[in-house]
Design a protein around this nucleic acid. Structure first.
Length: 644
RNA sequence: GCCAAAGUAGCUCAGCCGGUAGAGCAGCUGAUUUGUAAUCAGCCGGUCGUAGGUUCGAUUCCUAUCUUUGGCUCCA
């Protein structure tokens, strides 16, 4: 056991004495490598270069690279320490909480004696640069539990962190600190590490933004200041990222939505969408698309009331578990609520007339408009609103039918998302929340049913404990916006509770009454959110079938406006959404407008076209496609105009 | 709901220490009658988010409030 075996990335095995450090190994390979090295990775653990290695395993020396997540991880973690030192220097009395690397950078949560503002960033960055220039070593200090607790005694958050670290499984009764330089002299922080060898390794960083964050994510706990920053292996990496942020701003659905005149939201009804004519075309196109998918899968579309008496919400459990999220209204002296979900109404339809086992599975679909009183501060363009339309449906079925229904739905979601070019779909499995209806036995059953259905559908998922709906566990299909933020779109939820609460029954083969299971499901989720995602995904360059305007006819001069009008008429007659540009502008200007308005086809008509009954076709982003007769043009695009 | 910031013309933004606002683009009008990403000229356009307060006087200072943005919490 005095030797360990390290398997290098090229597959070769290196045998070294136990206790050899990563730095020594790097040196033995090449001096240059040792100079560049940031840390090492043994197995799946990243370790300091100076850490004595004691076990065999796969091994790599981590060097600066914008492509290596491990390199970025250490750089960013170290950078967060430099940020924290700079802030502690500039604002004495700052208390540290927690400063981890995250997907695109790092943050540090702290309690400052004065509120920070963006104007402080320059000062902070300047101080950080000084610390980096001094090239001080990150020095690890291992101490006993008692000593560690003593060191953090004065600091509320760090003391809490230390206690948690000691309580964590696998803790050996010691704590580690890292000093940005010399222990006892320079700034230090309770930290498990690892870090880069010295501050000088941090070549490219930027302080990005400020935010509030709760201590331990607990709403009732202290509100800390979170400072976000990012760090890359080099200036190029940083600049590429900053450029990406700029580009993402251009893709923002709120900007494109306004530029393309799709919708607006105003102060009179925060979080609710005014769909303009062009946006409405898209909403309707999406609904028709969904109809084309679900009709042939046996769904029956229904329409139910948006305002429902309180008594139904009491029965369903919403009045108890969902109350603060509902819009209430009075009708005379009757208390009513605007529906936040369609499920109770669908059960009311199910309850009309006696149902037999032969009726199951019964799939009731609705483009139901729901309203939820979301907390102020959570709204975000189309992505998070207070009034939205779901492509909702509820499947009433027997327990035996759950697995196949869920699996069918998963396939449907896959198919639909693929149609929009989303191939890698993140699936989250959310289990029972603290605030729920129903007994544990039915939750056990529901969760098990969903679990087995995911196997049947061959879905890999991420577990999301405690995040289910109050009536049942759910699968969530998550898409990302232009900044990579997660948004739950599709969902399916198994519910053993609501049908019973609202008295749903069917007569089984045994001539006895049974309570059906209900599956809540939405494929796109909310039309608003899904469209928001699509706008950012396509950057407004929608496929022809979804484009609010499909064709614009440009008359070369006033003389040809009449001919342009006849062309427009012919296209409109076959259902192609066609505009006319009859302004007195040069064709170059009109084309520029057309391209900027993201219109799929521009038809230019002048002397030649008018005399021959033709159009000059120009395709978005591709340019001149030559001349065609109107009939040829219609034939060439009609197929692509159809849904999907 | 919490923390921070912001709100000036349809859009993007200027406006230093308080003296009732400006540009570009868009829009409108006129001239031009145009061949594949910006023709020229003129004009219109704003209770400076809202309500109070301080002041001779507030877009500017103070307070409250609404909304938005970035996060946190929460959620489709």
């Amino acid at each position: 056991m005095s030797q360990i075996e390290l398997t290098l990335p090229d597959g070769s095995i290196r045998t070294v004495a136990r206790g050899t450090t990563g730095l020594e190994i790097a040196k033995s390979i090449a001096e240059g490598l040792a100079r560049k090295a940031l840390a090492v990775k043994l197995g799946d653990k990243i370790l300091d270069l100076s850490y004595p290695l004691t076990t065999s395993g796969t091994f790599k020396i981590i060097t600066p690279s914008n492509e290596d997540p491990d390199a970025l991880y250490v750089l960013r973690h170290s950078c967060s320490h430099v940020l924290a030192e700079a802030i502690c220097d500039l604002y004495p009395g700052t208390q540290l909480a927690y400063g981890p690397p995250v997907e695109k950078g790092f943050y540090y949560d702290l309690m400052t004696p004065v509120p920070l503002t963006q104007d402080d960033f320059e000062k902070i960055e300047t101080r950080m640069k000084e610390i980096i220039k001094e090239d001080r070593p990150f020095t690890r200090i291992n101490v006993s539990a008692e000593e560690g607790l003593a060191r953090t005694a004065k600091d509320k958050y760090k003391k809490d962190n230390a206690e948690r670290a000691l309580a964590r499984e696998g803790n050996d009764g010691t704590l580690s600190f890292y000093a940005n330089g010399e222990p006892g002299k320079n700034w230090e922080d309770l930290c498990a590490g690892p870090h880069v060898p010295s501050t000088g390794k941090l070549k490219a960083f930027k302080v990005l933004s400020l935010a509030g964050a709760y201590w331990h994510g607990d709403q009732n706990s202290d509100q800390l200041t979170r400072v976000y920053g990012t760090c890359f292996a080099d200036k190029d990496g940083l600049e590429t990222y900053l450029k990406f942020l700029e580009e993402a701003e251009k893709r923002d659905h709120r900007k494109i939505g306004r530029d393309m005149d799709l919708y607006h939201i105003e102060d009179h009804s925060p979080g609710m969408v005014f769909w303009h004519p062009k946006g409405t075309v898209m909403v309707n196109a999406l609904k028709d698309y969904v109809r084309s998918k679900i009709d042939r899968r046996g769904y029956k579309e229904v329409i139910t009331p948006e305002i429902v008496d309180k008594s139904l919400w009491i029965k369903s459990g919403h009045a108890d578990k969902y109350n603060e999220n509902m819009f209430k209204t009075m009708a005379g002296d009757r208390e009513m609520a605007v529906k936040p979900m369609n499920c109770p109404c669908h059960i009311q339809i199910f309850n009309q007339g006696l149902k037999s086992w032969r009726d199951l599975p019964l799939r009731l679909a609705e483009f139901g408009k729901c309203h939820r009183y979301e907390p102020a501060g959570t709204m975000h363009g189309l992505m998070r609103v207070r009034g939205f339309v779901q492509d909702d449906a509820h499947i009433f079925c027997t327990e035996d039918q759950i697995a196949s229904e869920v699996a069918d739905f998963c396939h449907l979601v896959k198919e639909m998302y693929n149609d929009f070019g989303f191939t890698e779909i993140l699936v989250k499995f959310s289990t029972r929340p603290a605030k729920r209806v129903g007994d544990d036995a039915s939750w056990d059953k529901a969760e098990a049913a969903l679990e087995s259905a995911t196997k049947l559908a061959g879905l890999a998922y991420q577990l999301n404990p405690g995040e289910g709906a109050f009536y049942g566990p759910k699968l969530e299909f998550v898409l990302k916006d232009s900044l990579g933020r997660d948004w739950q779109c599709g969902t399916i939820q198994v519910d053993f509770n609501l049908p019973a609460r609202l008295g749903a029954e069917y007569v089984g083969k045994d001539n006895q009454k049974h309570i059906p299971v209900m599956l809540h499901r939405a494929a796109l989720g909310s039309i608003e959110r899904f469209l928001g995602i699509l706008i950012e995904e396509y950057v407004g360059d929608f496929p022809l079938w979804l484009s609010p305007v499909q064709v614009r006819v440009l008359a070369l001069s006033e003389k040809y406006v009449d001919y342009a009008k006849t062309v427009q008429k012919k296209l409109i007659n076959v259902g192609i959404r066609t505009e006319l540009d009859e302004t007195n502008e040069k064709v170059g200007y009109k084309i520029r407008q057309g391209e900027q308005n993201k219109i799929p086809y521009l038809l230019i008509v002048g002397e030649k076209e008018a005399s021959e009954g033709k159009v000059s076709v120009r395709k978005r982003k591709e340019g001149d496609q030559g001349q065609k007769t109107v009939a040829e043009f219609i034939a060439s695009i009609q197929n692509a105009c159809r849904i999907g």
